[in-house]
Design a protein around this nucleic acid. Structure first.
Lengths: 241, 241
DNA sequence: CGGCATTTGTTCGTATGTATG
DNA sequence: CCATACATACGAACAAATGCC
């Protein structure tokens, strides 16, 4: 781990432990560089991580103000599904493996991803049960050119744990889209939908560090179980209007 | 404008103009620093902006790969509403100013924001009409301690244009939350909802650069007119599972 | 397999510009 | 006007990953 990452983690935990309180200023960059015995550049890299993560706000000529981060649910950003919420908040949940088989990619997905229509993928479908109800349906399509085999046990546990810890793959980036859609026949069959007519769908394409596309995911959420929280920093002329 | 921002914009436009094509490598940081006559650090700052914005992927020992950004709707990220989509894509739309008055903050919002219950705010309600239908309802609450006056004409045009261009305020950051909710009586009255039972609601609290909270916004979207696109880069152990 | 050149990642030191109070 | 703090920029050095021979 690099020095500026260590320092980021230390200051982060100091903020979470209220060593630095919301509304106060952090020590100046020069003071911090003395405290940690590093150059100011190293401190600035640590602070810019804190900035991106929503812990502080910097102001030229003044200092770095600690934001009130505990007023909000944690983690701040990127929380998409109740499954992730549960992981973060230790709630109980159950994963049902509905399907795990090899097939050629469905045509509409090939079109969406702009890949060949005879690409081979693993199709993994999982239902997420909370409090007795199936509230999330996850459909993953994984390119067999990258992932050779998916044991059922791994699919029941965590695909990403399998990819990163066991196969040594590293995720690079993803594009996600959120929209509301009418519930499909499959949704009605597999999820506990009461009288809902719609679900919220998140579609993502996930790429490895070397930019190869290796996964397409569709996550379908019951309306009352969808929530997404984002921390957005102003960059350039973005309209919040 | 700082040098590294200029260089970011130049390379950005080179990517958009296909001077640098998707899948190819950018010139190395040393080559770029020669081309632009700046130090490598300056180039690295420009490249890190490109990285955050989803234009490139960097790989140690290899170089910076140009990503295929044209396959997706533009702008890549942070697009929340059809109003923003229209602005970006020159679609036609109409804004109806439903209300613009001073009042004390509604109690449930005071609770949500953890501010005093007798805070004074401007309440601005606007309906967004597309193709004859009202598909978005925006409710803005603006602290009178920061914003003294809101002319109707400005509310009909763009609040943010008014704040930033005319009042000289600078937005710092915001936290946004997306949820699906049952349609309220007000939604049914003011929006063209057909038989919809739910709407997608985005709630944001917007802060100025000096961290003062100055706005709370609730934007209510008809289900078939909501869409949000995000570019997410991997940082640390985040589960896409 | 090792060695080597190339490329990005990290850190340091220094200098100068700019905003704040 | 001045001290302080953050912003930008340059130059240098070494580490780590990659690719090629």
């Amino acid at each position: 781990m690099s020095r500026f990452q260590d320092i980021f983690l230390e200051i982060e935990s100091d903020i979470l432990n209220q060593q630095y309180k919301a509304g106060e200023l952090l020590p100046s960059e020069n003071q911090l560089s003395q405290k940690y015995n590093v150059s100011r550049e190293t401190i600035r890299k640590a602070l810019s991580l804190l900035l991106e993560s929503g812990y502080i706000q910097k102001k030229q000529g003044k200092g770095s103000i600690v934001l009130d981060v505990k007023r909000f649910d944690f983690p701040i950003s990127g929380l998409t599904s109740y499954k992730e919420l549960q992981d973060a908040q230790q709630m109980s949940s159950e994963t049902i493996l509905v399907q795990n088989k090899k097939m050629t990619i469905p045509e509409h997905i090939a079109d969406f991803l702009k890949v060949s229509k005879d690409t081979e993928v693993h199709c993994v479908i999982r239902a997420r049960k909370v409090d007795g109800d199936v509230v999330i349906l996850d459909k993953d399509y994984l390119f067999t050119s990258v992932i050779k085999e998916i044991p059922d046990a791994e699919a029941r546990h965590s695909l990403y744990h399998y990819f990163e810890k066991k196969l040594g793959l590293t995720i690079g980036f993803a594009r996600k889209e959120f929209i509301a859609e009418p519930a499909s026949k499959e949704d009605l069959e597999l999820m506990t939908l009461h009288n809902d007519t719609h679900v919220v769908v998140t579609r993502s394409e996930v790429h490895l560090e070397d930019t190869t596309l290796f996964q397409y995911t569709e996550s379908r959420h019951r309306l009352d179980r969808f929530r997404f929280v984002e921390f957005a920093r102003r960059r350039g002329p973005v309209s919040y209007d």
